[in-house]
């Protein structure tokens, strides 16, 4: 079984976000870059599928600048066979242009399963899997928490409000991984050493026209200062009032 995983390198979720000088994106200084956590589930799923069928190849594809090779290398250390970097100096492309770049590459590749994370934890768009699927005219199941492949059909569980949908689809197909899909493995040192010898193909890529335009990035209003509302049950009415009118959460 041939599996392609689309992976994005993102700032670590603990990173302190500083707004860049352009006022529209983050300041990349002091950022720790990691493999998008949802994409790790996708990579793990791909590896397990390959291990189950005992044949095929897991290819990791990413769009980004040179720095993204370290993220691809991490996936190779987990066990993916090779990587492709669609290299662009515009690391913050919009979803549509990135999906186009991916689709252009994927059109030339043969695969049974195309995996994504359900969203990247940087811009949290959750769009690219469906965009690529449409561009390749493939079915797509998002927020997958369980995936079973049998022959050329797949059964995917997806979490929705109030329950789980079990979706059946034919292969090739696109899936976007949700958190509970599996437990991503920790790359062994053996894996890291082997990954050094695996191939990462870099392809210079021009992103197409953007469909959206970010005009401003700003800090959210600061977290309300924590305070002790009061003591014992007497404080409850005031807490209710705060939750209702200040926090607007109930």
């Amino acid at each position: 079984m041939n599996i392609v995983v689309c992976m994005k390198q993102v700032p670590d979720t603990e990173t302190r976000i500083k707004i860049g000088s352009d006022g529209r994106s983050i300041d990349p200084a002091d950022v720790e870059w990691i493999v998008n956590p949802y994409d790790e589930y996708a990579v793990e799923e791909a590896l397990q599928m390959k291990e189950r069928t005992g044949a095929g190849e897991v290819v990791v594809v990413s769009v980004g600048n040179e720095r993204a090779t370290t993220a691809i290398r991490s996936c190779l250390a987990m066990g993916a066979d090779r990587g492709i970097l669609l290299k662009t100096e515009h690391p913050f492309g919009d979803t549509f242009s990135i999906a186009e770049a991916l689709a252009n590459l994927l059109k030339e590749m043969e695969f049974d399963v195309l995996l994504f994370g359900k969203q990247a934890v940087d811009d949290d768009n959750a769009q690219v899997a469906q965009l690529v699927a449409h561009m390749l005219d493939l079915p797509c199941v998002t927020v997958v928490t369980k995936l079973e492949i049998e022959g050329s059909t797949a059964k995917a569980h997806r979490e929705v409000e109030g329950g789980t949908e079990i979706v059946e689809t034919s292969l090739p197909s696109v899936f976007a991984a949700e958190k509970d899909l599996n437990q991503p493995r920790y790359a062994s040192l053996k894996g890291i050493m082997t990954a050094k010898k695996k191939q990462i193909e870099e392809k210079e890529t021009q992103l197409g026209h953007f469909k959206i335009e970010v005009i401003e990035m700003l800090k959210p209003p600061p977290r309300p200062e924590g305070r002790i509302v009061g003591e014992g049950r007497e404080a409850v009415p005031e807490l209710m009032q705060l939750l209702k009118n200040e926090a607007n959460v109930i």
């Binding site: 670590d12 603990e14 720790e32 990691i34 437990q183 991503p184 493995r185 920790y186 790359a187 062994s188 040192l189 053996k190 894996g191």
Partner: peptide, 22 residues
Amino acid sequence: QVLMESRFPQEVVATFKNMETN
């Protein structure tokens, strides 16, 4: 177990990753 097999209690995965990243 850790360096060759990557087999260890599951909760340690997060510990290692946390150390790696932060």
